[in-house]
Simulated scan of single mutants.
Amino acid sequence: MARKEILDRIQKYIRPYCVSIGKDFRLKNFDPADTSGLVLDKGEASELLRRGTEWLAEEQDMLYAQDRWSLLLVFQAMDAAGKDGTIKHVMSGVNPQGCQVFSFKQPSSEDLSHDFLWRYTKRLPERGRIGIFNRSYYEEVLVVRVHQEILERQRLPPSFVSKRIWDERLLDIAHFEDYLTRQGVVILKFFLHVSRKEQKKRFMARLDKPDKHWKFSPSDVYERKFWDDYMHAFEEAIRATASEHAPWYVVPADNKWFTRLVVAAAIVEAVEKLDLTYPTVDPEKRKELQTIRAALGREK
């Protein structure tokens, strides 16, 4: 199958989940169990994903060699939505030298002594590299919004902790992403949209398998009490920060094979648009390389 035909198919499957204008976004319009009418067995899904990851590996090699663009992949989701597995499978063929993965946990005392974006800006990808944020600066308008007692630990001047703080932070994030885009950072944001029912199913599976117990935390179940609050926070975040240069992908996450295909397709499409090529050398450099080759050829 020609690449153009593959790209056409890719666009068909990712277009329904891409949000680049947030004004009228409503989370209720996205079904966590959707597969866009695609019916595949496990083997077919694995083969499609393999082809996608191979393509991504080729593009990443040129991204690294060209050293002009960087790619920032932001993953947000409720617990058990499959962030870790998606990152593992989609990025399986990428050269580790050109990829950096950061998982942001609770902020340190040093983090809390700075602005809310500080610890994330330190981890932005260098030119030529892919940076993956497993959770990100969006936590500051998600978990902090749901559990507003966390704001107290951030030691903001009281006058700045107003009813407008979430709108202000979302505006700051939108401006931050606009700035990064103008520095050559391609930003893709993925919300892995899992249903509450499917999350419960996955939690039960972890509890039933001893080798999965390490992945389970009582806090995961506690957070389910705030499901509606989180859905509202996600909706507000996507609505305020979706843009052409930093789109959100609201990816159905009840079927892991489809989640991974959509994420891989979105990344491939984004890097393909960059029209990447390997750097060319000037005539003087080419002549120098030919001289070196000749010298090596004469060695015994």
Rank of each mutant, 00 (worst) to 15 (best):
E54A: 11
A57D: 11
G85R: 04
P32N: 10
L49M: 10
G52A: 09
L73H: 00
R51M: 09
L48F: 12
K23Q: 15
R50D: 10
R26I: 02
D61V: 04
D84Q: 09
I10G: 02
E59R: 10
S20P: 05
D24R: 04
A45Y: 05
C18P: 02
L63R: 00
C18A: 14
Q66S: 09
A45I: 04
L38G: 03
L49A: 04
Y64A: 15
Y13V: 15
L56D: 00
K12V: 15
A33H: 09
F75K: 07
G82S: 13
R9E: 15
W55V: 01
A57Y: 04
L63I: 13
L27Y: 01
L56E: 00
A81P: 00
L71M: 15
G52Y: 07
K12C: 06
E58T: 11
I14T: 14
R15C: 08
M62L: 13
Y17Q: 07
E44G: 07
M62P: 02
D24T: 14
M62D: 04
D31I: 08
W55C: 02
D79W: 07
F25M: 06
L71N: 00
P32I: 04
E44Y: 03
T35R: 14
S46F: 09
L73C: 06
G85E: 11
L38T: 09
R15Y: 08
D24K: 05
D61F: 07
W55K: 01
L38E: 13
G82F: 06
R51L: 14
E44Q: 15
L72I: 08
V19Q: 02
F30Y: 15
A77K: 00
D67S: 12
L73T: 01
S20R: 15
S70C: 14
E47G: 01
Q11D: 06
R15H: 12
D67G: 08
Q76P: 02
T35Q: 10
G85T: 12
A45K: 01
E54F: 10
F30M: 10
M78V: 11
Q76L: 11
S36F: 08
P16T: 13
L73Q: 01
Y64Q: 06
D31S: 13
K83C: 12
K12W: 12
L40N: 03
T53P: 01
D24G: 05
Q76D: 08
E59L: 15
A57M: 05
L63S: 00
L72A: 02
W69Y: 14
P16I: 04
S36N: 14
W69F: 13
A80R: 08
K28T: 12
T35A: 12
G22K: 03
R68H: 13
G82C: 11
Q76E: 15
D8P: 00
A33L: 05
R9C: 08
A81E: 03
I21L: 06
F75L: 07
N29K: 13
Q60F: 06
M78D: 02
V74Y: 03
F30I: 11
V19A: 06
C18T: 04
S46K: 11
L49E: 00
A33E: 01
Q66V: 03
W55N: 00
